[in-house]
């Protein structure tokens, strides 16, 4: 030691640290402390999500036009397969089915891409996690925020499709923001859970596409669950309808489409939507925070 002798010599490290108010480096902060740290980083979270969104299409000739063109092409493909070839529109007129389908695809894609981004939020950004200090939840939150902004572009397409098939703006369109807010909460919670799982097991990135596709087909993205399952026991349809993805899709369709009335919604739909959002968001946040000090290892 080069330091000249001092009264502190011989003091055990822990006591020396306590004497001068030093804290353990990289220790996990308390839950409320963590929330306020995260809030302090809100500008970074927003800037990071916008940067990711812009960087996505910056090499393309059409540039940011792809933000709108990609969902439009997506909707066209599904319309071609399920609307024209498979005719999955049983029990619905074309004026209802096309917006029904496009809404389903966009709303589900929002959850799907949040989950996929969540899996890679930590494991795909180890460089960042190992170089800079910030609450790690910033990353999954930022990624689901990116997906939210992506969805807002898709909403432009969705409005055009709805109007094109005779659903004009009306009072119930005011329900769209609260539905989006609840779904965003739900997605963020899910992304936080997936981020922790994915940081430990990066293999999930390979597995999740199959899980998500199963979920998509089970949630009635391209067909009406009650109509499709009317010959089966009622509880199967109930379970499928109460799953969060189906809930948010149905609420969005109810808000947007003229001929899609409340008879298509399960009972207590708003309570279920809010319940899922709060449960998953709060649970996911706590679950992610519990491993805060371990992200970035190996």
């Amino acid at each position: 030691m080069t330091a000249p002798p001092s009264p502190d010599d011989g003091l055990p490290p822990a006591e020396l640290a306590a004497k001068y108010g030093l804290s353990v480096s990289g220790a996990r902060p308390g839950l409320f402390e963590y929330v306020s740290q995260l809030w302090g980083r809100r500008h970074f979270i927003l800037a990071f999500s916008q940067a990711k969104l812009t960087a996505q299409y910056s090499q393309a000739k059409l540039g940011q036009l792809w933000q709108v063109a990609t969902p439009l092409l997506n909707a066209l493909v599904y319309f071609l397969i399920f609307g024209l070839i498979l005719k999955a529109d049983r029990g619905m007129s074309r004026e209802v089915y096309i917006p029904f389908l496009v809404t389903g695809v966009f709303v589900f894609t929002f959850t799907q891409s949040s989950v996929m981004a969540g899996v890679r939020a930590i494991s795909g950004n180890l460089g960042l996690v190992r170089a800079l200090h910030f609450p790690r939840a910033s990353l999954p939150v930022s990624f689901s925020l990116q997906q939210l902004q992506q969805l807002l572009f898709s909403m432009i397409v969705l409005f055009v499709v709805a109007v094109g098939f005779g659903s004009y703006p009306r009072l119930s369109w005011l329900l769209i923001p609260p539905v989006l807010a609840l779904q965003f909460l739900f997605n963020t919670g899910l992304a936080l859970v997936m981020a922790r799982l994915g940081s430990k097991t990066p293999d999930l990135a390979q597995l999740m596409p199959f899980v998500m596709r199963t979920w998509m087909y089970a949630s009635g993205v391209m067909f009406s669950i009650p109509v499709m399952l009317k010959d089966h026991p009622a509880w199967i349809g109930d379970i499928l309808q109460w799953n969060p993805a189906a809930i948010y899709m149905d609420l969005m369709r109810f808000a947007l489409i003229d001929g899609y009335g409340s008879e298509n919604l399960p009972p207590h739909v708003w309570a279920v939507a809010a319940g899922w959002a709060l449960l998953v968001a709060a649970g996911g946040f706590v679950y992610f925070w519990k491993a805060e000090e371990r992200y970035g290892r190996g």
Partner: peptide, 26 residues
């Protein structure tokens, strides 16, 4: 020391938040 890699055993105590001069990853 920066608290970016968790310790297997032992501890690091620091005054304030040490920072690594490195922003490349962001």
């Amino acid at each position: 020391i920066a608290g970016l890699l968790p310790a297997e055993r032992g501890k690091v105590y620091t005054d304030g938040q040490p920072s690594l001069l490195g922003v490349n990853a962001a």
